[in-house]
Each structure stands twice: as structure tokens, then as C-alpha cells.
Simulated assay, not measured.
Amino acid sequence: MTNLQARAAEMARAYAPHEHRPLDGYVVAMGAFGALATALAAAAKITGRPAPHRPALADVALVSIATHKLSRLIAKDAVTSPLRAPFTRYTEPAGAAELNEEVRDEGSTVRHGLGELLTCPFCLAVWVSTGLTGGLVLAPRLTRLAATALTATAVSDFLQMAYDIAKRKAEGGD
């Protein structure tokens, strides 16, 4: 273990003496997010595409719903479980094609921190919204098209759930 790793481990123990907190994993994730944001800003500058002074309300609504859907798709969907598998362990179904998974404790704290990120739709939302917002600057037509598909899927999900609830009520279920 290097001196830097030893100091990081000691800081984590001092921060949370009764619980494992993968602080260096979080630092890696924050660094990656900073790199993403910097890359998007650099790409906008290089291509000469300015950020809007005020994003259109329609774009904010579109990106908001698309962010919700893509974040849940990455963090919870059964089909995307191979992306999370190196960092998580399956625990049980969570209903409506979603899974509950626990973050793997073995291995590195970076793996643990990334596992926490990949299983948390709330945490992923910042990454997804940053990517979609950057896409609105760099490739607005393609981003709006992708966001429209994600938004339509999110609306469909809610309609499917509403239909299921209405059907159960009509059949006398709870």
C-alpha cells in the first residue's frame, strides 16, 4: 500500500469509524464526472457551439423526463444488469422489470464506489442530465430525438402502471 493509499484509508476510517465508506472510490467518480463536464465544455468551445442563455422550457422538460428514464434504465433494469454485474450482486426482483442489487464489498473501494453510483438512479441522474444537456449544445437534433424516445418510454411506463392499477380495480382486486 502506498503512502497516499494509507492516508486515504486512514481518512475514511476517521470519517466513518463504524461503517465502510469508499471515499477514494467517490473521489474517482467525482474526477470522472469532472472530466466529462470538462470534455463537454471543451468540445463546445472547439466546435464553436455556444451554450444557450436560457434553455427552452420544452428542452428542460424533455431532458428531465429522459434523465429519469435513462437513470432508472441504467440503475435498475434487468436488461442492463450486465453493466452493473462487475460491481453488484443480484438480490431480488423489484417489480416492473427492475432488480434490487447490492454493491459488492470485496475488491477495491473504487469498485464499491462505482457500484453505489451504478445502482442509484438519483446519483446517475446528475451524470445523465449533464450528458443530455451537453448533447443539446453539441448535437441538438440527435439529442432531442434520443430524449424524445426516452421520454415516450417513461410516459409509457406510467401508463402501463396506471392501466394495471385500473384493471385490478375493475376486476375487484386491491
Rank of each mutant, 00 (worst) to 15 (best):
G134R: 04
T67F: 03
F87H: 03
P140T: 04
T148Y: 11
C120H: 03
P82G: 01
R141L: 11
A147P: 11
R54N: 09
A66K: 00
P55Y: 06
S71G: 14
T109C: 08
T119F: 06
T109P: 10
R84N: 03
A78D: 14
A94L: 12
V126N: 00
S71E: 05
E106T: 10
R141G: 08
H112F: 11
E106N: 14
H112I: 07
A51P: 08
A125T: 06
A51C: 09
E116A: 02
L114K: 01
R111T: 14
S64V: 07
C123G: 01
H53Q: 14
G135R: 05
R104Y: 11
T91A: 10
I74L: 15
T109E: 14
L70W: 13
S71V: 03
L150W: 10
L150D: 05
T109F: 12
V79G: 06
A61V: 15
L83T: 02
G115S: 06
G115L: 04
A66L: 02
R111L: 09
S129D: 08
V60G: 01
H53N: 08
T151Y: 08
G115N: 04
L117A: 06
P82C: 00
L145V: 14
L136W: 09
P86T: 02
L62N: 09
P82E: 05
P86H: 02
G95C: 01
